[in-house]
Design a protein around this nucleic acid. Structure first.
Lengths: 124, 124
DNA sequence: CTCTTTGTATTATTCATTATAATACAAATA
DNA sequence: TATTTGTATTATAATGAATAATACAAAGAG
């Protein structure tokens, strides 16, 4: 599991880490029960502060994606909440993206095709 | 066209305004050529600083959604760029949302159905 | 027990972004 | 001429993000 930070992005580092961990779980690069890189290890690897990594992990923990032992570090949960619905922020974000797509001239079919491809891309 | 600001949101006010204007264009509440509320008018109406509204309008202008005369104010463009593809940030955001949906147990069909409904909701 | 590694907590500091405030200016128009 | 438009400027406050330097508790290895 390789984390790549984009310094030019306006997305905070801790958010980028969080997003990539979720993507990793989604496409199977990270398996249930698997341990994430250690806070200090990952911080050193990508050249950032430990607390920034910790912040990302705490966010993931709070959202229910991972859990943490003292000794075993932070691991991917085996029992995700299968809520089968989007979070409020995801839903709001999706509405925004769809509005932009429509104004940009995309048809419903155009958009759904893109979604379909994206969904299949990282086949878990 | 009513703009509603959520003070509790972590999304900056100028971004919220921008998003709602685009949503308004998308669903036809704002028509091509129509004038947006004046900078000072909207600022007073929703109780914020004029420059915050101006920042939102400048962003929309830069993105090609509106144009501005000195006297006629800021108006919705009549000739949008019909690029028929998602912006980089939209594409990245969508990937993120899809990853979260997948981890949450949604199938491709579940997700596409939600997208379809959202696309049809504000029928322009 | 001692030492190391784990996540976490604390405190302080720096930096960028956001938002406000108070003006000012050019252009258009009534 | 006076008003309204967007915009520019400068200063300031508030917040969030990231770093830095430690420290602590828990668990395991030796």
């Amino acid at each position: 599991m390789i984390i790549k930070i984009n310094d030019m992005s306006d997305i905070p580092i801790y958010q980028q880490i969080r997003n990539q961990i979720i993507a990793g779980i989604s496409d199977g690069k990270l398996e249930p029960g698997e341990q994430l890189p250690t806070v200090r290890g990952l911080a050193t690897e990508i050249g950032i502060n430990s607390m920034t990594v910790s912040k990302a992990y705490q966010l993931l923990k709070q959202e229910g994606y991972v859990y943490s032992d003292r000794r075993n570090g932070v691991c991917v949960r085996r029992d995700f909440e299968q809520k089968k619905q989007l979070s409020k922020s995801s839903s709001d974000g999706l509405k925004c993206i769809i509005a932009e797509a429509k104004v940009g001239g995309m048809t419903k079919e155009d958009f759904l095709e893109i979604c379909e491809k994206m969904f299949e891309e990282g086949q878990s």
